[in-house]
Computed example of a mutant assay.
Amino acid sequence: MSFLLGLTGSIGMGKSTTAKLFAEMGCAVWDADAAVHRLYAPGGAAVAPMQAAFPDAIVDGAVSRDALRGVIQADPSALKEIEQIVHPLVGQDREQFKAETDADILVFDVPLMFETGGNAAMDAVACVSVSADIQQERVLARGTMSLEQFEQIRAKQMPNDEKCERSDFVIVTDTLDHARQQVQAVVEQIRAGLNDA
Rank of each mutant, 00 (worst) to 15 (best):
S2N: 13
F3V: 10
L7N: 02
K15I: 05
T17H: 07
K20P: 01
K20D: 09
K20Y: 04
L21K: 06
L21W: 02
F22R: 00
A23C: 05
A23L: 06
E24F: 01
M25G: 07
G26R: 12
G26S: 04
C27L: 05
A28N: 00
D31P: 06
D31G: 03
A35M: 12
V36P: 10
P42C: 11
G43H: 09
V47T: 04
V47Q: 01
P49F: 07
D56Q: 13
I58P: 00
V59C: 10
D60C: 05
G61S: 10
G61H: 13
G61I: 02
R65I: 00
V71A: 04
D75Y: 00
K80H: 10
E81W: 01
E81Q: 15
P88R: 08
L89V: 12
L106Y: 02
E115K: 12
G118N: 14
G118H: 10
N119D: 15
N119G: 06
A120T: 15
A121I: 07
D123T: 07
A124K: 04
E137W: 07
V139H: 00
L140R: 03
M145A: 07
S146M: 10
L147C: 10
L147M: 12
Q149H: 08
Q149S: 12
E151N: 15
K156L: 15
P159C: 06
N160I: 13
D161W: 09
R166D: 02
D168K: 04
F169P: 03
T173N: 00
T175W: 09
H178T: 12
H178M: 09
Q182Y: 06
Q182V: 04
Q189G: 03
Q189M: 08
I190Q: 06
A192P: 03
G193Y: 09
D196R: 15
